[in-house]
Design a protein around this nucleic acid. Structure first.
Length: 430
RNA sequence: GUGGAUGUAGCUCAACCGGUAGAGCGCUUGAUUGUGGUUCAAGUGGUUGGGGGUUCAAGUCCCCUCAUCCACCCCA
């Protein structure tokens, strides 16, 4: 039983290695763009009380029903690895009394989320989201501004021609009214519905709208439409959103079947999908949640937000022509200079040279292992993708010089040991 | 939770009807005792995911199990 076991990541969770620079890239862009709109970055814990999601996201939702990573702590309290980001932000709003700060509250966040599902392309048990929330303003201009910000972010990443799917699921009373109508309409066809939809007929008829089975789609052709059932305030709100989005040149398409999977959404909902992603094609989704904070025991405060699937977004970024070349060039620009001391007694000198380079703001590493042949150590420098090599040994010590070699052009020059860091800095930035 | 595909060297993959495991790349060293990439030479590479079964003989056939991927479902 003492067999050597090879440890590996938990199913559906991955080491981010090759994609790490692209992850960092989109994170930097998010900080840059969201800050331009006055959003502040916050970080909330990865673990919350299970009850937060049950109440906030909704017991009927798939996410809460069967996808949560829940466990009991040592005192028997049920905790959950967060499956989404909005409920924790709503909790933070209440706990930290953001209501007493400047309004509306604008925050963004990024980090890992967890859902217990069967992994496949674009769907992981640990995945990453970048999200933003605007809490405290009920008006349609907040919806518009949030979407404008979102699209600005995507443009900055290099995306063009992304189309936003848009819909309004109305206020709670509109939804109930509509659910009732839809239920009445579908009841006669009950036997033609799949098991899932039949169950939803009881629990959440709205979700039947985004079915993919052809027969159900056909049935729904003649169904009452959500937009015809919207109450006056919700309808007016949606109309302003649409008009203003057009004013700002936002490309969107009204999608009557767009209803989101999380129970807290009200009025405006939206998502962006991509044909370049495989079966899991949603890049981001979001919407208004005017009842969420009250549902969590707070005052009646409206909010709106979105969550971007960072893993999927990164996959798409890497597919943009030239994007990975740009990322590589950027990485290459930051490659360190490699100091190679020649001869075992020069290792200390190598350390000093590297430190002088770093002090001058030049990234530097040192190939210390002087017992190996010089050629092997230069090979290591090449494998580190270093372009510039600083060589230093007995000859240089005597002459008061160092040798600076350029791997790209296979040239080298001898420069003065005094102030060599400044010379190197000038050469590599030329 | 359901279905399908795939697991052989660090990586990408071969191995006929069951016959004793191979290539390319990589890595190490040398040709060049102080100069990487190209070239040449030598070397390093494996409990064929794991367990059991059938057989004289299993990478190959059968069963179980684990893992990965893709799809359903769900969503980011």
């Amino acid at each position: 039983m003492a067999a050597k076991r090879r440890f590996q990541t938990i199913k559906g969770m991955h080491d981010l290695v090759d994609k790490a620079p692209a992850f960092a890239f989109v994170e930097e862009k998010a900080r840059e763009v969201f800050s331009l709109f006055g959003y502040r970055e916050v970080r909330t814990p990865v673990v919350e009380e299970t009850e937060l999601f049950v109440r906030g996201v909704g017991e009927g939702s798939e996410v809460v029903g069967k996808q949560m990573y829940s466990f009991d702590d040592k005192k028997g309290r049920s905790l959950t690895l967060r499956p989404e980001g909005t409920a924790p932000i709503a909790r933070a709003y209440l706990q930290n009394n953001w209501a007493s700060g400047p309004q509306p509250v604008k925050v963004f966040y990024m980090g890992p989320y967890f859902r217990y599902e069967r992994p496949q392309e674009g769907r992981y048990r640990q995945f990453h989201q970048i999200g933003a929330e605007l809490i405290g303003d009920p008006g349609p201009y907040s919806d518009v501004e949030l979407l404008v910000m979102l699209l600005r972010f995507l443009e900055e990443l290099g995306f063009e021609d992304l189309e936003v799917g848009l819909n309004s699921v109305g206020d709670v009373d509109c939804r109930e009214r509509y659910s009732e109508r839809l239920r009445e309409f579908l009841e006669p066809y009950r036997d033609e519905l799949g098991a899932d939809s039949r169950r939803r007929l009881e629990t959440n008829p709205l979700r039947i709208l985004d079915t993919k089975t052809p027969r159900e789609r056909e049935l729904l052709e003649g169904a009452p439409r959500l937009r015809d059932v919207l109450g006056g305030p919700a309808r007016d709100h949606f109309q302003v959103v649409r008009d203003e989005l057009e004013q700002f040149g936002v490309d969107f398409e009204i999608d009557d079947r767009l209803v989101r999977g999380l129970d807290y959404y009200t009025r405006t909902v939206f998502e962006i999908t991509s044909a370049d992603l495989g079966a899991q094609n949603a890049i981001l989704g979001g919407g208004r949640y005017d009842g969420l904070i009250a549902e969590l025991g707070g005052p009646s405060v409206p909010g709106i937000g979105f969550a971007i699937g960072q893993d999927r977004l990164v996959d798409l970024v890497l597919k943009i022509p030239g994007a990975s070349a740009r990322l590589n060039a950027e990485a290459h620009r930051r490659q360190p200079v490699c100091v190679v001391p020649i001869g075992s007694s020069y290792r200390g000198h190598g350390m000093v040279l590297a430190q002088e380079l770093r002090a001058a703001g030049v990234p530097a590493i040192c190939e210390f292992d002087s017992l190996r042949p010089l050629k092997a150590r230069l090979k290591q420098a090449a494998r580190h993708r270093c372009r510039w090599i600083v060589l230093f040994g007995e000859d240089e010590l005597v002459a008061g010089t160092v040798v600076l070699r350029d791997f790209t052009n296979s040239t080298q020059e001898t420069i003065s040991r005094d102030g060599f860091a400044a010379t190197v800095k000038a050469r590599i930035s030329a």
